[in-house]
Structure formats: C-alpha cells, structure tokens
Design a protein around this nucleic acid. Sequence first.
DNA 1: ATCTTAACTGTGT
DNA 2: ACACAGTTAAGAT
Length: 172
Amino acid sequence: MKNNCIEMSIPTPEGQFTARYTKEGLAELDFPNGHHPARGSVAENSKDRDFSRRLPQIKKWHRATQSALKTILAGKVPRKFPPLVIAGSEFQKSVWRQLRKISRGKTKSYGEIAKAIGRPKAVRAVGGACGANPIPVLVPCHRVLAANKKIGGFSGGLDWKRRLLAREGVKL
DNA sequence: ATCTTAACTGTGT
DNA sequence: ACACAGTTAAGAT
C-alpha cells in the first residue's frame, strides 16, 4: 500500500502500534518502533476526498482493530475483526490464509504450512511470506515455529514472538 | 546437543 | 541472472 492509506495509531500497554487503512479495510499493522519508512503518510492522504467521506467508517474499523489487537495481546480471542485487506502474490495470500486457520495457543511449522498449500518443498519461501505479512498479530504469523518446535525467526523481533506465544500459553 | 552443509523456492533488484 | 530469506533434514563432531 503505497499512498492510498490513512494512518492511525494504537496506544497499548506494550507501546504504540500503527495501523493503516485503505478504503477497503485494514491493510497494515506495525509494531511499536517498527515503522516502515516507505509507506503512506497521513497528512498527504487525509485530504483525499474519498477518504474524508469514508472517515466515519474507517474510525469504526479502527475501533475494531484496537480492540482485537489488545485482546490478543491479553492472550484472548477477539470477537470482532476489521475487514482485512490482503494484498500480495498468490503464494503469499495462500500462506496467510493458512496462518489465519491457526487458532490461539496452537502452532504450526513452516513445513506444515508448505504442505498445506500444496508446495511441500517451498518451506523456505513460506518463511519469506510470513515475514512479508503486512498485518502481524491479527494474522498470526507468530504461531509458526521451526520444525524442531523451536522459535524460528520473526520480522517484528523475536522478543515479540516469544511474548505473544507466552500470552497464549505456548511453550517452546 | 550443537555445528555444517546441501537442497529447495518465491521475491526483489 | 543473482542473492537472499522467519527452513529443513541429514551427517559429522
């Protein structure tokens, strides 16, 4: 999402997250201090007519995002989600679709995901797709571990991955 | 238990 | 065409 986004922040006990919306829904979520440099800016976009017309709706989505995020941070299961804008290659989308099937407190390996999407050998590419996930936490890329049940990697920082899993009662 | 290495695949440049 | 990445399984130490 380059330009057509409106950016809003989410204060939590764990720091300030940043959410970006298109007119379709939530497109990106960033960890505190993990801001992406090359993405849309508020000042520029908030003048967009289309966006000002939809602002009330976006605010509503934003409330859903905030509550969902905080709920997950608290280790519980959100009742409501904002509409998610899933933008990526077919491969990535199929991976992210699998991620969303992993429920709270459960985990899968990169290899299992690869198998599930019918590309059993694309394990490494699956890792790449997880890292490219624009909506972490809500799309639970943190629930994917390495084959040996070890932590694996995490683009948002391993400390976050551990923290999120701990909140869900997952042990390594 | 830890380290090294070779296979493998989608993505960005 | 090439290098890289949130891997993996197998072999050596």
